[in-house]
Structures are given as C-alpha cells and as structure tokens.
C-alpha cells in the first residue's frame, strides 16, 4: 500500500519531485505533461486506482495517453472538490461555464476512460441539456456525426420531423 511505504523513517528523504514517491501519484497526459496528485485524487479515478492496486502501489506514474494536458486539470479540479465534499450546484454551474462544447465532450470521454462516476453523470446531464431543443443538424455538428441514412429512410425521417413541427414553430438554429 502506498501509505505503508511512507513511514517516518524515510519520509524525510523523499523529495516531492521524485516521480516514484509514494506520497503523490504522477499522471502523465497524452502530450507528456506530468501532473502530481494526492493518492486520494487517484482513488476518485477508478481506472488509475486499479492500475495502482495491480502493482501493489509500486507504480505511481500513470500514463494517460487519451487525456490531454488541457483537460486533465479540469478532471483533477473536479475530483478535488468531490473529495472535499464541495460539489454544489453553484460549483458545477461555474465549472461548466468555463467549458466549450469541445471541452465538455473531451472531459466526458475522459471521465468515462478514468471511470469517475460522479463526473460522468454530471457531464452526461450537461450534454443532454446542451442538445435539448436543438435541431438534428446541430446535434450532428455537435457530435461530428455523418448522416448514414438511405434516401428512402431520409424521406421517412422528414415526415416524422414535419409532424413534430405541426402546431409548433420550428425553433431557431443555435448560435453555435
């Protein structure tokens, strides 16, 4: 266990910058930037924690090739708040205000990859909120998805969509 290694005997000799230090976990982003975090933060990231557990805490540097150095600080920030029990509606609102659609998307995939349930739940709701009442085109653009329907299926979809608008004014395209 990580905690057991850092006994009083050798704690003085362990430098904070030593990547193999048991006191911190080094998360290495896809673009090779090292982020040092407390073991408690790593615990929030199930994927990272199971990685550590697999090696009985001997390995404390974890490569995360799918997460950029741009996104990782957001993930860490959320986990820190989570540990402190300070995930409030206000915090979440502020947190998401800073993020553009691309960042929300990347964090969502990062949360899935790291298996951080709370963050995943939260971002899933953010995405649901962001696509609510948007057009098909908007959703396609937002997710970068290509339309793969056949012309016959398209004709059917147009009828379905036309029906949804009956009695309703088509809503404006989103500003994004």
């Amino acid at each position: 266990m990580a905690e057991e290694v850092s006994s009083q005997m050798n704690s003085l000799s362990i430098s904070e910058t030593n990547p193999s230090s048991s006191a911190t976990i080094s998360l290495v982003s896809g673009d090779d930037i090292v982020f040092k975090v407390e073991p408690t933060i790593a615990k929030e990231m199930e994927t990272v924690q199971s990685f550590i557990d697999e090696t009985d805490g001997k390995i404390t540097t974890i490569p995360l090739p799918n997460i950029s150095s741009h996104d990782l600080p957001y993930v860490i920030e959320y986990c820190e708040k989570s540990i402190a029990g300070k995930i409030t509606k206000e915090f979440e609102a502020e947190f998401v205000k800073k993020l553009n659609n691309e960042e929300v998307k990347e964090l969502f995939l990062a949360a899935n990859y790291l298996n951080i349930k709370k963050l995943l739940d939260f971002l899933s709701q953010v995405i649901a909120d962001r696509i609510a009442n948007k057009s098909v085109e908007y959703v396609r653009r937002y997710f970068g998805i290509e339309n793969d329907f056949t012309p016959e299926e398209e004709a059917k979809l147009r009828e379905e969509l036309a029906w949804t608008f009956t009695g309703v004014d088509p809503d404006d395209e989103d500003e994004n």
């Binding site: 696509i131 609510a132 959703v139």
Partner: peptide
C-alpha cells in the same frame, strides 16, 4: 432527455436524436 423532456415541443429533441444516424 427521455425523462426530462416530457412535454411538447421539448420532446422533439428525442425525434432529433433518432434522426442523427
């Protein structure tokens, strides 16, 4: 979305989702 958009016209988002791909 299924759970939150229970009234029209908000419910159109589900038809949009079904029209993406």
């Amino acid at each position: 979305l299924e759970e939150s958009e229970t009234s029209w016209p908000e419910r159109t988002v589900l038809i949009f989702c079904a029209s993406v791909c």
